[in-house]
Design a protein around this nucleic acid. Structure first.
Lengths: 332, 332
DNA sequence: ATGTGCACTGCAAAAGATTGCATAGTTCAA
DNA sequence: TTGAACTATGCAATCTTTTGCAGTGCACAT
């Protein structure tokens, strides 16, 4: 790899002149510049980003730390974040933790060493202290989807509202026994979903039928299958099912098929965190959809604002909440 | 952020001693070491990876350049690559190009500037020259899924074999009119799939019914839907459908449902590049599955071998081909 | 003719970590 | 007692790029 030095030697000038010529940062004689450009081309010189980063302290890279890449809303988010970041001249480094706090910790510890300029994370919730430390150390951090700590900016959805209105919607459609397949209540969005659900249930005078297990991978098909199956064993009269995420909704559709119950005639199903897959299923899944494009874009803008803020100025902590919009498809 | 210098000052030694103490690279008196460690802890010092990288020329980061993250086999691959890389102390930087050669070019040009130690890419095929240049410039490159250039190492599947045996399998199951929903034949894996399919078709004395459009996003639901729909309009007698990828298979299932045709009774469906989603669909999709875990792992090992090879030694170009195994589910 | 300012260029320091070479002290064998 | 051999540490160069400072011409106005 050619360096500035090589170019300088070939063009017969000092490295500083080459640097100035390339960055248009000071006067350089046209002839000199031409010679330099020729040398650059001949050696196919490209500046070393490491050295640039070392000087400037900037890496132009943002980390995205998520529990899972595929079959979740993070799929859509990752794509829009990647796109938006690229348009601002930043690259995205994706890490997935599998919801394992140990992996998350390891990951964060690598990232804080100047690996990236900022971190966008859907935190497991077990490393909140570390996250605060990292932010205190001057590294911009942004929580996405899961808001675990209010001293760190966040971009999330209004899960409570979505769960509430979906429950009421099922009621209006005639459902009188509505179950919720949820995840670990200690984790933010699941708790919010439950709040919304139970508020509606109370108002409607229905029975609270919700399942959630701890210590299991919530965003898995198997989890969704088991929860739904178990719920239907206990409450065979159920005619409406809400699931926290799409993969659970897919699992619910399978369970119902396996049990010979028709969707939406016998049982209606809504996923509370829909993403692009819902539209593509054999029985298209009705869901509450967050504007993942916009959320991704906004997240990138927020973190870049923090990154590029003048160093003295402490950026204000900001919490953005997007409402989901209900998309009616074939399961309701 | 504390630096080596700060630690050195606090521990009252030279930076070089601190460096040696931390890296166990030479004799350091136990007392001195203890003092240094205390200082490290007090300042919560963490080495700056940029500076380390600049010295050593290593970034411990590998780029993964894929056309799409979600709803494709890249989803599974990305996860296994990420995992394997992390276990070797490398981070993965994911870029998605949306199959756009311009985006891909832009992306590669950023990456080659010392951004990463190596590149794993599923190339669009339009930047082969650039890719060769990058490799010639000393940056390890590995093609995955799509082998566009034989002078660059690759890890791919045996698509031809999979298509061939799947076609024959459908025949054995009683299908006598078998269609193939494929992608742009100019692109490697699609061409291979077609070869396998048409060989079997010829041997069986059946009619060659395959659709593929250029200039469209092949790995999209809409593409799959349109192709299948159009195919069935022209050949209503079709009783077996092969699709290149899962998302097309999902689309085919929708088309068949919309047309009131039963799967697998009226029409059987096989996806030629199955991944984890097939198992989770309402009608579980039979498919040829590549060992994506193993392919991911192997890819990382291969690229790290190249990265860490002694600089003088030119690593040999290696081509790995994995065979898919047929997984029978509900669509056959 | 002399000062002022502009155009152009080079020197050297800086960013943070690693490492070859030098030095100095200690131990032990010849 | 001389000199290996080893332990322990510091100095200074190195990786590549950027940038403050200084300096050299040259033109133009006074």
């Amino acid at each position: 790899m050619a360096t500035l030095k090589d170019v300088a030697k070939l063009a017969n000038v000092d490295v500083s002149t080459v640097s100035r010529a390339l960055n248009n940062t000071s006067y350089v004689h046209p002839d000199t510049k031409a010679r330099i450009m020729a040398a650059v081309k001949e050696l196919s010189y490209r500046p070393n980003v490491l050295a640039q980063g070392l000087r400037s302290g900037k890496r132009h890279t943002i980390a995205l730390v998520v529990p899972k890449i595929g079959l979740t809303i993070y799929e859509d988010l990752a794509e829009s974040i990647d796109e938006e970041a690229r348009s601002h001249g930043y690259a995205i480094l994706i890490c997935h933790t599998g919801n394992d706090p140990v992996v998350e910790k390891e990951c964060l510890n690598r990232l804080r060493n100047g690996f990236v300029d900022g971190i966008i994370i859907a935190p497991t919730g077990k490393n909140t202290r570390l996250l605060k430390d990292i932010q205190a150390g001057g590294m911009p951090v942004l929580q996405i989807i899961r808001k675990q700590e209010s001293s760190i900016s966040s971009v999330i959805g209004n899960y409570e509202e979505g769960a509430y209105s979906s429950t009421r919607y099922l009621y209006e459609k005639g459902c009188r026994s509505i179950g919720l397949v949820n995840g670990d209540l200690a984790r933010m969005p699941y708790a919010a979903r439950y709040r919304g659900y139970s508020r509606a249930i109370r108002e409607l005078g229905l029975e609270d039928i919700s399942v959630s297990e701890k210590n299991r991978k919530t965003s898995s098909f198997e989890y969704g299958y088991d929860c739904t199956d178990q719920m239907l064993d206990l409450h065979p009269q159920i005619d409406g099912i809400l699931t926290a995420v799409d993969i659970q909704g897919m699992a619910a559709l399978r369970v119902l098929k396996d049990r010979g119950q028709k969707v939406p005639e016998d049982v209606k199903v809504i996923s509370l965190t829909g993403y692009s897959i819902g539209e593509k299923l054999e029985t298209r899944l009705s869901s509450c959809e967050l504007p993942s494009q916009e959320m991704g874009r906004k997240s990138v803008q927020m973190i870049i604002d923090q990154i590029e803020a003048p160093s003295g100025q402490k950026p204000t902590v900001q919490h953005l909440e997007f409402s989901a919009s209900f998309v009616e498809r074939e399961t309701t």
